[in-house]
Computed example of a mutant assay.
Amino acid sequence: MDAETIRKLIESGLPGARADVQGDDGVHFEATVVSEAFRGKLPLARHRMVYATLGDLMGGAIHALQLRTITPDEAGAAR
């Protein structure tokens, strides 16, 4: 598995989302996902939305995924 494939899966599963995925060993990854769909949702719900885009890859080809899930407004405030 590679970071670019994960990025594409997340972005296609969450239309309008932007994902930045890092990971060099092929099984451990970090991702920052920015999506309007996260507005009003708690962190656990946001993470579940991202995990849903990856399906059976989680716990298989993707051993670990550290997530930062934010709305566009939150991303702008962090700059």
Score class of each variant (00 low, 15 high):
55 G>I: 05
30 E>V: 01
5 T>I: 00
67 L>H: 11
27 V>S: 15
30 E>K: 14
45 A>S: 12
40 G>D: 01
25 D>L: 01
8 K>H: 02
6 I>A: 04
67 L>Y: 10
74 E>V: 11
44 L>R: 13
63 H>K: 10
49 M>K: 09
54 L>H: 01
5 T>E: 13
58 M>R: 10
56 D>C: 00
4 E>C: 00
20 D>K: 14
36 E>G: 05
5 T>F: 02
8 K>F: 02
4 E>S: 12
79 R>P: 00
76 G>Y: 09
45 A>E: 15
57 L>I: 00
9 L>W: 10
58 M>T: 04
77 A>R: 15
68 R>I: 08
45 A>F: 05
52 A>V: 00
35 S>L: 14
48 R>M: 07
70 I>R: 15
48 R>V: 01
53 T>A: 02
46 R>S: 13
7 R>G: 09
49 M>F: 07
46 R>Q: 15
65 L>I: 13
36 E>K: 15
72 P>K: 12
56 D>T: 08
11 E>D: 05
14 L>W: 12
55 G>S: 08
8 K>T: 07
11 E>G: 10
32 T>L: 02
6 I>G: 04
65 L>N: 02
62 I>K: 08
45 A>G: 04
25 D>Y: 11
22 Q>N: 01
22 Q>S: 11
71 T>D: 07
19 A>E: 12
16 G>Q: 06
70 I>L: 14
10 I>G: 06
46 R>L: 02
38 F>V: 05
57 L>G: 00
47 H>S: 03
1 M>F: 09
26 G>E: 10
52 A>M: 01
65 L>Y: 12
43 P>S: 13
17 A>D: 02
65 L>R: 00
59 G>Y: 05
60 G>A: 09
53 T>L: 09
43 P>K: 12
48 R>C: 05
14 L>Q: 07
78 A>M: 14
36 E>H: 06
15 P>A: 03
46 R>G: 03
15 P>D: 06
35 S>H: 00
36 E>L: 12
66 Q>M: 10
66 Q>C: 02
45 A>L: 10
15 P>L: 09
37 A>N: 08
60 G>V: 05
3 A>C: 07
37 A>I: 08
71 T>S: 14
49 M>H: 02
6 I>R: 15
53 T>I: 03
46 R>P: 08
51 Y>D: 13
71 T>I: 03
79 R>I: 01
56 D>H: 06
49 M>L: 12
63 H>W: 04
77 A>D: 14
13 G>N: 01
3 A>M: 01
62 I>P: 09
27 V>N: 07
23 G>T: 05
59 G>I: 05
21 V>N: 04
65 L>A: 07
39 R>H: 15
57 L>M: 13
2 D>G: 10
35 S>K: 13
42 L>K: 15
15 P>V: 02
79 R>V: 00
4 E>D: 15
23 G>C: 01
8 K>M: 06
41 K>E: 08
11 E>F: 01
20 D>C: 03
